[in-house]
């Protein structure tokens, strides 16, 4: 087992303290902060999250932020709502967690309901369809750029790229069932990369 060496090198700070250790913030304040963050996050909330939690409110220092974000990625579900749950809990317990998640999604969901209604009404009009086609083509570029950035962040080892290539071929090109591929690929990938260290 070479895992402890990994810990020493990485020095991940425990990001999640119990509520009692932190200055208490009211659930309402948490709700408002996450609300402003989510409504400011056009085209992805990540930059807003960092600016808000680290620079503006200073609820997290940069190390805490990195660790919290990593946990949010590791746990199932959307990264940002997991981060909201952790930060909300840290500052105001269960009520804080609920306030943070509600602040994050409530108004965007209501806004999307209105947009969806508008789309149902005018979505078939030619100018709307043309604009959406152009937007979509650009949005695909955005999605590709995210994937390529994730690929660029992988360690420069052939094993990582071979695994990525296999999964891309299975899901992207062959369109094999997602669940089957994921349930097979995830443990194999973790095991191979652990072995190869």
């Amino acid at each position: 087992m070479s895992a402890p060496r990994e810990v020493a090198r990485d020095d991940v700070a425990a990001p999640v303290a119990t509520p009692a250790e932190e200055a208490r913030v009211s659930p309402w304040q948490i709700y408002v902060v996450f609300l402003r963050m989510s409504l400011g996050g056009f085209g992805g909330v990540f930059p807003m999250v960092y600016r808000t939690l680290v620079e503006r409110t200073r609820w997290l220092n940069p190390t805490d932020f990195a660790a919290t974000w990593a946990f949010g990625q590791m746990l199932p579900g959307s990264v940002i709502s997991n981060v909201a749950t952790m930060v909300g809990y840290r500052y105001a317990g269960a009520r804080g967690a609920i306030a943070a998640v509600l602040g994050l999604i409530m108004w965007p969901v209501l806004l999307l309901l209105a947009v969806g209604t508008a789309y149902a009404t005018v979505g078939d009009l030619a100018p709307v369809r043309r604009a959406l086609t152009g937007m979509s083509a650009a949005a695909v570029g955005l999605s590709m750029a995210t994937g390529i950035k994730m690929l660029r962040n992988l360690p420069r080892r052939w094993m990582h790229f071979a695994i990525a290539a296999c999964v891309f071929i299975a899901i992207g090109l062959l369109r094999l069932p997602f669940l089957g591929v994921f349930v097979l690929a995830a443990p194999v990938s973790v095991w191979l990369i652990w072995r190869a260290r």
Binding site: D11, G147, H160, I171, G172
Partner: peptide
């Protein structure tokens, strides 16, 4: 969540290629 780092690091490193491939598959679709 929040204690030891090594399991989390193991999973994060181990799943990173899968995540990147899934993201690329999404954009390909």
């Amino acid at each position: 969540v929040g204690g030891d780092g090594w399991i989390q690091r193991l999973l994060k490193n181990g799943l990173a290629p899968v995540s990147a491939a899934l993201m690329l598959s999404s954009s390909w679709v």
